[in-house]
Amino acid sequence: MISRVAESCFWMNRYVERVEVLARMLNVNRAFQLDTVISTSDRWRPLVIVSGEEKRFLKRTAEASVDDGETVQHYLTWEEDNPSSLASSLREARDNARTIRETVSLEMWETLNDLWVWFNDRAARRMYDRDRHEFYARLRDQCLLFHGIAQATMLHEDPFEFMRLGTALERAGQTARVLDIKHHSVGPTEGEVETPVEAAQWVATLRFCSGIEPFLKREDMPLSGKSVADFLLFDLAFPRSVLHNLLRVRNFLNLVRPPLPTPIGQASHAIISETIEGLEAMDIDRVLEAGLHETLTSVVSATASIGAAIHRDFFDPSLPTSAVGESSA
């Protein structure tokens, strides 16, 4: 497929994933603040930090407003100048889809375009004001619907694999970031013993990843920082765990690579394999020993390197004349 189109497939899904994750986090956080005694500054600041927006946010608003839920929600939802806001991610997702209308299925396009039209309409503002829970839930659900529609309406070949590649890579990074939130709120994770506030924080972390019920099905795992981190990093069956998604990234990369011995795809394959092997060589005890925050940081930076390698391999290849083959487009 055309390299530029593959790139848009990849990014469209990354942005859809960002919308889904952020909408869910905002919703969970609103519920979370209602049922704990955690201080206001620890409730909202981490979301700003995790979205990489602390600097810009503080520049624009007074220091105190980082603790003000309304201001934070508005900034993360509507602010066009915030590249991580729902508004920005949704616009990027839809813009990418619009440049590949001939590639995405009609149903996918209509779902995404509908959501975008609604989001920019007064109706969405009204819902935001009157029923915030329903507002975020709708965003989250439409993103999930988008994936389901893709699965059921796209040809299961390269364009679809590049979309799923984008989703898996984004999910691996997002789960690592979400798991790191606690580091920014109640401090580093050390041992097994935890305060009620910490326990509540771990439940919220699982909810951020829609992982509370899946986690509870792991009966041998007590609710603790260690087991939550173990689950979110290593559980192969959990569709948002870091390792699950890294393995999917490798799988999709194998599907879109041309048959060997062409060099296309080698660089990204090398980095993803190295990342997976590094993680598989550890268990949760080794991770805590090395520091959870440090491990998560290295996972996040590995996903960035994988993204860059995918870009070089597939989206912006240099074109040696010897690579000009005889087969057709």
Binding site: M1, S3, R4, V256, P258, T262, V324, G325, S327, A329
Partner: peptide
């Protein structure tokens, strides 16, 4: 290339 048109694809250049 060589007076022929190619598309840049994820599988390398393809004739158009």
């Amino acid at each position: 290339e060589r007076d022929m048109v190619f598309a840049k694809t994820t599988l390398g250049p393809r004739r158009v």
